[in-house]
Amino acid sequence: MSNASPHTLLKLGDVRRVFRLIGEVRELGSDPKQWRPHMIRRLGQMLGAEIVVSSEIHFRKAAGTGRMRVIDIGWGCDSEGHVWKIHTEREDETPDAYWLLAGKPAATAGGRAKGSSRKVAPAPPPGAVEELVPVKPARPLYGGTCFILSQCALPHAGAVDQLGLHRASGDQPFTQAEHRLVRLFHVELGRLWRKDAIRRAQDPNADLPPRLAQTLEALLEGASEKQIAIKLDLSQHTVHNYVKALHQRFEVSSRGELLAKAGKIRATFLPQLSLPPQKQS
């Protein structure tokens, strides 16, 4: 018999609601202006929170100067379902101000002392090169009786996804089970942003055998079966069989459908961030 307190145990119904919400986020995921407000409204209802805030915090370092720019984009929601957008940009801050650790600490310009007033960060000049700063939480989950803060690292995007829930002083305190439920939700949401998941979402070739991947890539570039056969030094009959195999894998019946579906998968990254990951050279 378990000695665990009922305040620490997750209820099956609550876990089901978490995974149902993950599915809803994926369905709305092409537009962060839809999925984030929907997510925080639902979380507020599920956990009886007075305020829920969900944001992505991006860290950029200017190449050459080392000046750090922090972009915080997200949404907040109150207990009545009113939603507001958050978008701030600041400079001369370091990840530890957000309870985060940087993979490569960046020097701040001007020797500003920690804890001093913040400055609004100017937009980088056109063509300026900024490096992503990989970050990770010092502790993934913070909390107490009145607040829960969960952080999910997105090092490939130079960002962290942050989820905070608050109750007013005097309200029923958050239980350990509610802390665990928030973390479960955030971990499952974070799985959608894992680098390999993003790669698969952006690259329909990711799980294909090499020859099928080469054939699909050539089709997406506009090559005919005859041109693909010449390029890959294969018979046209073999290439035709590869194309038929691609039709089966993508569950389509024509080349047009194949190209449309493969192209759509390549462009899909759900749920979308407000500031998409930039390609690094």
Rank of each mutant, 00 (worst) to 15 (best):
T268K: 08
K261Q: 10
H247L: 06
K226E: 10
E257Q: 06
R255Q: 05
A223Q: 15
E217I: 01
I230S: 07
G263T: 09
Q227F: 01
Q227I: 11
E221I: 13
H247A: 12
A229T: 12
A229V: 10
H240R: 13
A267N: 12
A267D: 10
E225N: 09
S224I: 09
K261V: 15
E221Y: 13
Q248N: 13
S254H: 00
I228K: 03
K231D: 02
E251R: 07
K231M: 08
V252T: 07
S224T: 15
H237V: 14
T268P: 05
S235I: 04
E225W: 01
E225D: 09
G256M: 03
G263R: 01
Q248H: 11
K261W: 01
V252M: 00
K261E: 06
K244V: 15
L259G: 03
H240V: 05
Q214D: 11
L246E: 05
E217H: 10
K244L: 15
H240W: 08
R249Y: 01
L234Y: 09
T268Q: 11
L246D: 09
T238G: 00
A267Y: 06
L259F: 01
V243K: 11
A218E: 06
T268D: 04
K231T: 14
T268F: 07
V252A: 02
R249I: 14
S254L: 00
H237C: 05
N241M: 12
L258N: 04
L246A: 13
L216F: 04
L216N: 06
L246H: 08
E221T: 14
A229H: 08
K231R: 13
Q236A: 07
E251I: 12
G263K: 04
Q236Y: 01
V243Y: 03
A218G: 07
A260P: 03
L234S: 01
Q248M: 09
E225I: 15
T268G: 08
K264Q: 14
N241W: 05
G256C: 04
T238I: 05
A229I: 13
K231Q: 13
A245Q: 14
Y242V: 08
D233M: 06
A223D: 14
K231N: 06
K231W: 01
H240L: 05
A260H: 02
T268R: 11
V239I: 14
K244G: 15
H240D: 08
